Computed example of a mutant assay.
Amino acid sequence: MISKAAVPALMWCVFAITTGEFVIAGILPDVARDLAVSVPAAGLLVTAYAIGMIAGGPVLTALTARYPRKPLILVLLGIAAAGNLASALAPAYPVLFAARVVTALVTSTFFANAVVIAVSAAAPGRQASTVSRLVLGMNLAMILGAPIGTFLGAGQGWRAPFLAIAACCAIGLLLVGRLVPDVREATPATSAVAELRVFRRGDVLLAIAVTAVANAGLLMVFTFFAPLVTEVTGFAAGAVAVLLLVYGVGAVAGNVAGGRLADRAPMRSQLGLLAALAAALPATWALSGSPAATAVMVFVLGALGFSVIPGMQARVLSSAAAAPTLAMAVNASAYQLAAAFAAWLGGRVIDGGLGLRALYLVAAAVTVAGIGVSAYAWTRDRARTTEPATPLQEGSK
């Protein structure tokens, strides 16, 4: 059992590392201008980070599975701090690109180990709400870290946010070293082979598939958020940042509520929340001509979209109890793949002549597919009478 202060310490670290992922979007023009590259080339820094998480995260997690978790996350935090410091000091675009890739490589592995450590301290039936506290670190990175980093970059130059993030990671090192005890007995190290063996289990693969499919619809809307609210609804460009804040506040509220609901009835709440999201998307389509109604629906979409994440993460942990760390890293990669697919499909919808507004309806259809995958997973759970039920599964019945 770890101390109550350990989870907030880990949440701070998640906030710091995730801010490093998000902040680049707000300073891209400054990076491009200072390093004498085009804005599209600077945009590849975002792609590089995603690729690092998708491909590198699971590989690094498997290779480090045999190491004790606390020393491992301290090393990962140190790499994150060094990667952001290297980004701040990068003399040329290739150096910045390499620093972003290195930083991305440790992100999924750190988050996976942090979740496993935090859940080891959770009381029975409180796994999902514990996960939601770490996800809250991501929410805060979105609604506080990225805007503050953008503001800092505007006033002090694009290198300043990376210096600040490196300092936050260094603070995280001190917090983890002081507040997170060694948890070798509660979360024993495994091996790469043992971690990979867990993917023979159909329920693990199904849990990860739920993450990929069920999140793709909303991610499509989020990818094209700015043109949707400006070109379809008619908001001024300056209102986009405010609406993103509204979305982020909704995400925080939904994350907290979703974690509590998932503790009580994981699959029932997941299906219900996904159904509400599938209904909210066409409602947003219908109301998209009204700025006031759209602002309300932005909050609703943020809340519903993030309400399902704690339960999905907890389900992966429950399904992959023998090797949870790699499963969590692969689950994070599945989320990134969902984002990549959402961007591709959204682009096809727009280029196909259906227009921006149709994204809401296509996103609803994709979410319905996510409901189908989730319902199939629940049916399999209920049909498995020969295996002992986990606390999460018992709560779903």
Rank of each mutant, 00 (worst) to 15 (best):
A363L: 01
M142P: 00
T187V: 15
G372V: 11
G250Y: 13
L206H: 09
L261N: 10
T379N: 10
W285A: 13
L45V: 11
V106Q: 06
S307T: 09
G254K: 05
R33K: 15
P282Y: 05
S288W: 10
E21C: 04
T390G: 07
L175V: 10
A104L: 11
T294I: 07
V176W: 14
V31W: 08
L136D: 00
C13L: 07
I208Y: 10
P91K: 13
A365H: 00
G137F: 12
G355Q: 07
A314C: 03
V101S: 06
R178G: 15
V180C: 14
Q156G: 03
T294R: 08
G311L: 09
V252R: 01
G153T: 13
G311Y: 15
G83V: 12
V246I: 15
G52K: 09
A99G: 06
R260M: 04
L60H: 02
M328F: 02
A383V: 00
G254T: 03
A280M: 08
T211A: 09
V300I: 01
L77M: 15
P68M: 01
A123T: 08
A41V: 15
V131F: 06
A275Y: 04
M138F: 05
G258H: 10
V366Q: 01
G238P: 02
A265T: 06
A280D: 07
